[in-house]
């Protein structure tokens, strides 16, 4: 039987002398690599994982590029509507494709990854290493930004070949919009990937991406739709991201309404994720 007074937990190096054994040659401090090293290592590991994953590349680069090229080559449906009436088609189209790319990486990719990492126990194991949960979250954020950078450069380059000429000032606003949108969609990914079974996450994350791509105000501005659908779709985070990027890159302006909609979705998703996210399946 145990004697609580004598048993206060796992005893450490102090016992080594008494037992005459040698502890692993290790100092008391500096055993963990510096925080920066740990987070960058994990971020690189995750980014390489995302970029070398075939299905993920399909959603994050190939499908957005297909949408870009296909919609650039045809005249239907009309994209230059509402505030963008009279703008060049490729200039209205490209911001929507960029929004689609943001959603694929920050939402679909992260939700699926999270769902399966919970299933496999990866989150729990990494939580016990010097990286920890905080380091893991930081690394995930960095990896999403790194992958987004690759996507934006590739899509931007192809769009430029097709004649895209963005507003120079708008590029800065667009960058802010992309980071805000990626944050909101990553939080939404945490709500989905952090709560449901991995298979359900896989199905739903892809379904939501396809539905939003088709009718979520991303490629086709919500204003194309008849009322009251236009109003409702305009309140989706996908439409807000698309509109924010279009206003920035076509007009060089700031769409405050879109920012507000994104912020509201972000706060809502953060609250839900904080309340319901589970680290294991």
């Amino acid at each position: 039987m145990s004697d609580p007074a004598a048993r206060a937990g796992v005893e450490g190096a102090a016992d080594d002398e008494a037992t005459g054994r040698t502890a692993p040659a290790a100092p008391a401090t500096g055993r963990a690599a510096p925080a920066r090293t740990r987070v960058l290592a994990q971020a690189r590991f995750e980014a390489v994982g995302l970029l070398s994953h075939g299905e993920q590349l399909l959603v994050s680069i190939v499908l957005p590029l297909l949408a870009l090229v296909a919609l650039a080559l045809v005249d239907y449906p009309e994209l230059a509507v509402g505030p963008w009436d009279g703008a060049r088609r490729i200039d209205v189209l490209t911001p929507g494709v960029l929004a689609l790319a943001v959603m694929s990486t920050a939402f679909t990719g992260q939700a699926i990854l999270l769902g399966f990492e919970r299933r496999w126990g990866v989150l729990r194991l990494l939580g016990t290493t010097p990286l920890g949960r905080g380091g893991l979250l930081a690394a995930k954020a960095l990896s999403v930004l790194a992958v987004l950078a690759v996507q934006l450069v590739v899509i931007g380059a192809v769009a430029a070949l097709l004649g895209w000429r963005p507003d120079p000032f708008g590029l800065v606003v667009a960058l802010v919009t992309v980071v805000l949108g990626a944050t909101v969609f990553a939080l939404l990914a945490a709500c989905l990937g952090g709560t449901l079974r991995a298979e359900a996450v896989l199905a739903l994350a892809n379904l939501v991406w396809v539905l939003l791509a088709a009718g979520g105000g991303v490629l086709l501005p919500a204003r194309v739709l008849p009322e009251p659908l236009a109003l409702l779709v305009g309140l989706l985070p996908s439409a807000a991201l698309g509109d924010g990027l279009r206003t920035a890159l076509v007009d060089g302006g700031v769409d405050l309404r879109a920012f507000l909609v994104l912020l509201l979705w972000g706060v809502l998703a953060a609250v839900v994720a904080r309340r319901y996210l589970r680290w294991s399946d």
């Binding site: 145990s2 609580p4 004598a6 048993r7 796992v10 450490g12 190096a13 016992d15 037992t19 054994r21």
Partner: peptide
């Protein structure tokens, strides 16, 4: 539950 483990064991 009360138990402990020692180094080297």
């Amino acid at each position: 539950l009360s138990w402990s483990a020692r180094a080297g064991e």
